[in-house]
Amino acid sequence: MKFPTTVMASAMALATFASAAWAEFPERPIQMIVPWGAGGGTDAVGRLLGAEIQKELGVPVNVVNRTGGSGVVGHSAIANADPDGYTIGIMTIEIDMMHWQGLTDLTYEDYDILAIVNSDPGGVMVSADAGYDSVEALLEDIKSQPAGTFKASGTGQGGIWHVGLAGWLLSEDLAPDYVTFVPSQGAAPGLTDMVAGGVDIVPSSLAEGRSMIDANRVVPLASMSAERQNAFPDVPTLAETTGSDWTVAVWRAVAAPDGLPDDVKTKLMDAVETAYNSEEYQTFMKDRGFGLRWARGDEATQIVADDDAAFGEVMKAAGLAAE
């Protein structure tokens, strides 16, 4: 077994030589890590942005799915990469939640957030068979029945829509678990289960329920946002109806490991901005019913930080945070 040792030794020697060379960023392919599976919304956003950034920077941007652990695996992979600009990733709202759950020590502070590129507010959706036409009527029924009568679903235990639901209930002076949350593996299985009669409410984003809404199987009662959504102009906000001031939205951001050199960071942010403003990206997001939102650098970091604090509060109140 002499061979591999020799190879190793010469490899080490060569590697030290090679690093001396320096050229302007980027000079080799960039890897974009997506913490969610191929085919999902986050994957699509990542692949499209990747293609546009590639056009802008002139080097290939390879989209790499690193899935599992409700996003923990992929987010860790982004944070643990070398902060040289050659590894970037799509960061999702879970970064503001999983550390409260005690799943990881990672927080948004472990990243250089380049930009927020999308945002979708939560909603209140019920099955068409349930016969509700307003969120007030639903809320009245929830209040008139004992705790646990109504069931909701649409994400995993402690996931974003679980927190969204708990936050809404708290804002209506109800216990955060007054509506029992049934964990599901995403909004689509939750919606299917609701239409099949398994649960009563799905508090996910309206974009996720769009096809079922179009099919008249699901009725959107409210949007958990400050203003009505462009794609659903007929759906009122919570504030307009029940008067609750609760808002929640998922966002997707492009992030890199903490500690990027300033020139690389600026170059990447510019490339992401061009990609965001490209016609392809804008049309795609509208066609899919995804909300467009742009915030760059410090502004984006502030949004992420605010959500982090807000979610921490609700999750503690709802018993979803680790002690």
Partner: peptide, 8 residues
């Protein structure tokens, strides 16, 4: 094994 279970 892992995190993907109903209880998270």
């Amino acid at each position: 094994i892992g995190l993907e279970n109903p209880a998270g």
